[in-house]
Design a protein around this nucleic acid. Structure first.
Length: 584
DNA sequence: GCCGTTTTCGGCCCGACTGTTTTCAGTCG
């Protein structure tokens, strides 16, 4: 049993306990344990004796996990599932409905799922319950309609687009003294639910009025002295947006607080408490001196807790607090350290721009090199290149390389891994390429064993330098294909194959968590590429670098931070090594 | 249920907003 499965069972247990009215701290204890298990570096099922070493896991939870591993299920969880209707946990997703309300609705009105909740609200049965009223009943109906119609989350690039529009609308208002993006968007999560802004102002009420009157605002969710919460629609992208209005002195603390994550903030407050300090969005309160400290910027805020500044992308409680306490945070990769892009398409296959224009756009970005990697022959829908077409393309690349100064174009390909694991071009052709990408574009539904073997077989080819978008997911649209990532990572390590971090905001593949795992447990090297199909898409590199930072990558982990000559040397390593092994 | 530089019991992160109340519980981030 994998750690992820154990973590999921503990989380389910917590959800059901919460609805059943169990003590909130107990519920939270299981949530924390779930998180610990998920982040645990060793396979828990194989080392049960080490369970109680883990923070947040004591006798009780250890017993539950042992039972789960031994019997495949948890008695308490099965018991809860048999007494609580399966449709209750989904009610927690409705904004405004928490565990207490769901519990009351079930006990008093026997409401067991979304449909029954909707019916009861329409018949006005809910308003008479204790703690409920007509407004809450109405909100429930609205929430159900929203959940059914509205996408839960938005992609990173869409959320950034909406946020930049809002910032543009507000930045020149006289009440706005300082404004920063906060929340999961500042942490650059791959999908975003709401946009958060923190604004320093001395006239919050006036500013609040201006915000709710912005033309893009479609609905006012809440409006108080320190918080304005609205729905906005910017060019068809509808999202929630929260604005936190604070004084200039409070700004740095508020920015930290509303950047989160929640889990990171809990750790910060726990640490503060050890120093006799109390952290809130308004500052750090010293109960001994009865003083509240405020800060000029976040760096000062962290310094007050004897910590170095922690980059927003790291603030997920995935080990950053421990590393900060040791003053040993990673030196995260920065966008300007990317020296080239190794995955892009042109008019030869399904791209929108010529080789020369892609090269000029890359040069304008300050790159030293690019690899042109059009699709291979089997991918008919994308205009995959025959060997003859490939030869024509190489001739053109050579002409442009001779003509252009300051940028080098590498001959590459994004070659399909066929369903049986074979590759789409013969080795003689691959041997003449500078950069060979292998990737999967067909038969996504193969089982885990077949898919894993398929990818590993491609990695074992001495000419394959990189696997592109290794899990094949499309965010909010298509799940990753089933692969055994541990076996893939192990094979990448043994063959010296690079794994891609695809910067397309629909992909971001590998994702942040897998990147971190692959780096920490296997020491792999990555390439951050855009897979651009036009010159404009070269700009997507920003999303890839952001995800790399969330995966704790440093420049040394990333192939395309190398200068060209070092890059070429690194690529030769695989071919040389594998050829020698093949010769045995 | 977990945990200990106020240690084996009594806490557990903190505050705003809403809708229900008439002093507060529930929810949210």
């Amino acid at each position: 049993m994998h750690n992820k499965q154990i973590a999921a069972a503990l989380l389910e247990l917590a959800d059901l306990l919460e609805i059943s009215g169990e003590n909130a701290f107990k519920v939270n204890a299981y949530r924390r344990a779930s998180r610990t298990v998920e982040n645990c570096r060793f396979p828990i099922a194989k080392q049960l004796d080490r369970l109680e070493e883990l923070p947040g896991i004591g006798k009780g939870t250890a017993g539950v996990i042992e039972e789960l591993v031994a019997a495949g299920s948890i008695g308490m969880l099965e018991e809860l599932k048999s007494t609580l209707p399966p449709g209750l946990p989904e009610l927690l997703k409705l904004p405004g409905l928490g565990p207490r309300s769901v519990h009351t609705l079930y006990k008093e009105l026997d409401i067991k799922n979304m449909d029954e909740l909707k019916e009861a609200a329409e018949k006005q049965k809910i308003r008479s319950l204790p703690g409920f009223g007509p407004k809450k009943e109405q909100k429930i109906l609205e929430a159900i309609a929203q959940v059914q119609n509205r996408p839960e989350r938005r992609l990173l690039h869409e959320a950034l687009f909406v946020a930049s529009h809002l910032a543009e609308q507000l930045k020149d208002e006289e009440e706005v003294l300082q404004m920063e993006l906060a929340g999961s968007l500042r942490r650059r999560k791959e999908t975003i639910k709401d946009i958060d802004f923190v604004i320093a102002t001395v006239s919050p009420v006036e500013l609040g009025r201006k915000i709710v009157r912005l033309p893009v605002v479609t609905e006012i969710i809440g409006q108080g002295e320190t918080k304005v919460s609205v729905r906005v629609n910017v060019e068809g992208i509808e999202m929630g947006a929260d604005f936190r209005l604070v004084t200039p002195a409070q700004f740095a603390s508020a920015l930290h607080h509303f950047t989160g994550s929640k889990e990171h903030n809990v750790r910060i407050r726990q640490r503060a408490k050890k120093y006799g300090l109390k952290v809130s969005e308004y500052g750090i309160f010293n109960s001994e001196t009865d003083e509240t400290m405020t800060f000029a910027d976040e760096r000062e805020f962290f310094a007050a807790l004897d910590l170095p500044w922690i980059a927003p992308e790291l603030r997920e409680d995935r080990g950053e607090m421990e590393r900060a306490e040791q003053d040993n945070l990673p030196g995260l990769i920065r966008p300007e350290e990317i020296r080239g892009d190794l995955h892009m398409h042109t008019l030869y296959s399904d791209g929108a721009d010529s080789i020369k224009n892609m090269a000029l756009a890359a040069k304008a970005r300050g790159y030293e090199y690019i690899a042109i990697t059009d699709h291979s022959v089997s991918l008919k829908v994308a205009g995959g290149l025959s060997v003859e077409e490939l030869m024509e393309q190489w001739a053109e690349i050579e002409r442009i390389n001779a003509e252009l100064e300051g940028i080098v174009i590498l001959k590459g390909v994004e070659m399909d891994i066929l369903p049986d694991g074979r590759l789409d071009y013969p080795d003689e052709i691959l041997a003449r390429m500078d950069f060979v990408i292998a990737s999967i574009h067909s038969r996504f539904n193969q089982d885990e064993e077949a898919m894993t073997k398929r990818i590993i077989q491609a990695m074992e080819n001495p000419y394959v330098n990189m696997i592109a978008h290794p899990t094949g997911r499309l965010l909010l649209r298509r799940d990753p294909y089933s692969v055994d990532v541990d076996r893939i990572f192990q094979a990448a390590k043994e063959t010296g194959t690079i794994l891609e971090l695809n910067s397309n905001p629909h992909r971001l593949d590998l994702n942040d968590e897998l990147i971190k795992k692959a780096k920490e447990e296997y020491g792999l090297t990555f390439a951050i590429n855009t897979d651009a199909h036009s010159t404009a898409e070269l700009g997507n590199i920003a999303y890839g670098v952001a995800t790399a930072r969330r995966g704790w990558l440093e420049p040394k982990d990333v192939l395309n931070t190398l200068p060209l000559h070092e890059l070429l040397q690194r690529l030769k390593q695989k071919t040389g090594k594998s050829k020698a092994e093949n010769g045995k």
